[in-house]
Simulated assay, not measured.
Amino acid sequence: MMLSDMERLVQLLARLPGLGPRSARRAALHLIKKRESLMLPLASALGEAAANIRNCSVCGNLDTADPCGICRDPRRDTATICVIEGVADLWALERTAAFKGRYHVLGGTLSALDGIGPEQLNIDGLVKRAADPAVTEVILAMGATVDGQTTAHYIMDRLAGLDVKVTRLAHGVPVGGELDYLDDGTLTAALRARRPL
């Protein structure tokens, strides 16, 4: 059975994260209603993005240039590499404007259940970059999940023989957080990561 153009559009939109079938139908109807001002420019932008955006060969970021803008920026600190699971994490850190070093995107985390081993991640590239004498610190910014922690421990083992300081992001009480709303794991991590004032 052939799908109509509308059904195909709804099915494709439903594949996006956060959109179920009902939300995809609403989005498709909105796009059709705003064909000239939204749908056609969106289709053009999607085509250009598909043709031009690629992974940076140095860090794994997404950009239209290779190396990416962050890797080419001479103002960035070349001595510090922040290791992250995906590009969304890079964007989150860049939003803070608190980190001025370079990044390394792994492309996920180790996960035995999903069949993701070290070969599927960009860990060898990280080890090669960390071996550069100009690099003095590698920050592990993995999520506080079992897979994130497993990946961080694996990377620490791989970097053990190099002359580089390995640090990790602090875990614990968020700014503005109230203790009675936090889960046990977060409170435990906060107690273990306490520091003097």
Rank of each mutant, 00 (worst) to 15 (best):
E7C: 05
E7S: 08
L9R: 08
L12A: 10
L13G: 05
P21A: 06
L31R: 10
K34V: 11
S37L: 10
L38V: 13
M39Q: 12
M39G: 08
L42P: 11
L42D: 06
L46N: 07
G47T: 14
A49K: 05
I53L: 03
S57I: 10
V58T: 13
N61W: 05
T64V: 06
P67H: 09
I70D: 07
D77W: 13
E85L: 01
D89S: 01
L93W: 11
L93C: 06
R95T: 11
A98N: 15
A98D: 15
K100H: 14
R102C: 05
H104W: 01
L106M: 03
A112I: 11
D114P: 05
G117L: 09
E119C: 09
D124G: 07
T136E: 12
E137A: 07
V138N: 10
V138G: 07
I139R: 03
G143Y: 05
D147L: 04
G148A: 05
Q149S: 13
T150Q: 14
A152M: 12
M156D: 12
A160W: 06
L162M: 06
L162A: 08
L169T: 07
G172K: 01
V173R: 04
P174H: 01
E178W: 02
L179R: 01
L182Y: 02
A190V: 06
L191A: 07
